[in-house]
Amino acid sequence: MATINEGFRDELIAHRVHLTRYEAGVVSKLVAALSTDDAELAARLLVALEDVPAGAVSVKKLTQVLAPVRDINRKAVTRFFGELGQVLKDFTEYEAGSGFDLMKSLLPEVVGERGLLKKIDAGQAYVRTVTEPFHGYALKGWTDKLEADRFARIVNTVRTGLGSGIAPDEIVKSVRGTKARNWQDGALNKSRANASAIGYSTLAHAAQVVREQTAAANDHLIKAKQWLSTLDNKTSPPCRIRDALQYTPDNQPIKHGIPWGDGPGRLHFHCRSTYTLIFRSWQDMGLLPDDLTSAEKERMNGEVPAASTYPEWISRQRASRQDDILGPVRGKLLRSGGLKLTSFYTEAGRWLTLDELRQRDAAAFKRAGLE
């Protein structure tokens, strides 16, 4: 029988997997919103270049000439962060509710009946998300920084092109990119990558704000935190060394010397780490023997779950969850075909297609009844 701490950890890992999908979809839409006015920006830039005087042009003069372009850039960045703000409102509300519901589903009913389980205010979590810094800036700071960096990139590209004697229409292509390459060969593409990193990190920051407030509101039920890193070929060294390490509720190391830093989700850009809460034993929660069944007492022993890798975690999940994460064919190959999770990837970490898997191990498909 799994303990409450084991169950909570496993559900949080599943939540992190689904959150990764959610983040990808949201960030893709946000970056598309940032690029909505690129055609107008390119047209204004071409017109503005007609007013650029011959010879060397200072950054100050060029900035003045490109004022219409700067206005469009500001509008695009404002739209990006406006839509991100609305996403954060919905996201913090969802995270606050799902975190509470998960604890309520795992803890014995008596915990809720005694009023021991506390739900946080999602509105307060949202305010903290947008006002507290992450990676050095609060959300307003990231707005200003993205706007300034994006415009500076445009100015520098234009100045370089003018200095090299490039024609105005070619300079515009250097800024926006070309349709043949899906606009990815222009200076603005770097700003899209920066916006994407900001989007991912903001959502991770929001998730951790909710987690921190939930832990603080229920500190009478919690004795420790345990770092959970997504262990694959993309995991950063700082996250690898922290995986499964324990920290006190106020983020002090337990039996090791590795600092918490900015915490999971905020340790670096696009950090995919999270953490689980280690609940106290039923005795340390102040519950009485008659409050619980024997099974509930056994599940609420306060023990810390043993370290678990992602392949180990997914191997013990229910079939429907395996199919949801891996796809139904790979799910059957995992359960009945004798394949391990690592078999679905190349040594470089690339996800193998089903045809490639079949070429590598046709017998596994037969064992899984897929032939």
Rank of each mutant, 00 (worst) to 15 (best):
R79T: 14
A42M: 03
V87G: 07
G85C: 02
L62M: 13
V59F: 12
G99Y: 00
F100H: 15
D51E: 09
D71L: 12
K61F: 00
K75H: 07
Q86I: 01
D71H: 05
L41Y: 05
V87S: 01
L106S: 10
L41G: 11
K119R: 15
E95R: 15
E50Q: 08
E83W: 00
S58C: 05
G85N: 14
A48R: 02
P108H: 06
V47Q: 12
D101N: 13
L107T: 10
K61T: 14
M103E: 12
L45G: 06
D71P: 00
L88D: 01
P68V: 01
V69M: 08
T78H: 12
P53V: 04
D37R: 15
K119G: 05
T63P: 07
E93D: 12
K89V: 01
L46F: 11
A39F: 06
D71M: 11
E113A: 14
M103P: 05
M103L: 14
N73C: 02
G97E: 11
A54E: 02
D121Q: 06
R79I: 09
F81P: 01
E109T: 11
T92W: 04
K119E: 13
P53D: 06
G115R: 07
I72K: 13
L84K: 11
E113K: 15
M103F: 08
F80D: 04
R70M: 09
L117K: 10
A43W: 05
F100I: 03
A43D: 14
Q86H: 06
K61Y: 02
L49H: 03
V52C: 03
A122Q: 04
I120V: 15
K61C: 00
A48N: 09
K119M: 13
L45D: 10
E95P: 03
V87W: 03
L102K: 13
K118I: 01
S98H: 10
P68G: 11
L62N: 03
A76R: 15
L84R: 12
F81W: 07
L116C: 04
L45I: 06
L102H: 08
L107N: 13
L41E: 02
S105M: 07
F81L: 04
V47M: 08
E83V: 01
T78W: 08
P68A: 07
V57I: 14
A96W: 05
L88W: 02
D121S: 06
K118A: 06
A54I: 02
T78A: 13
K60L: 10
M103I: 06
L46N: 11
A122L: 09
V110A: 06
A48E: 07
I72H: 03
L116A: 04
A42C: 10
R79M: 08
G99M: 01
L116K: 12
L62G: 01
R79W: 01
V47G: 05
K104R: 15
V111H: 12
R79H: 08
P68Y: 11
V59Y: 11
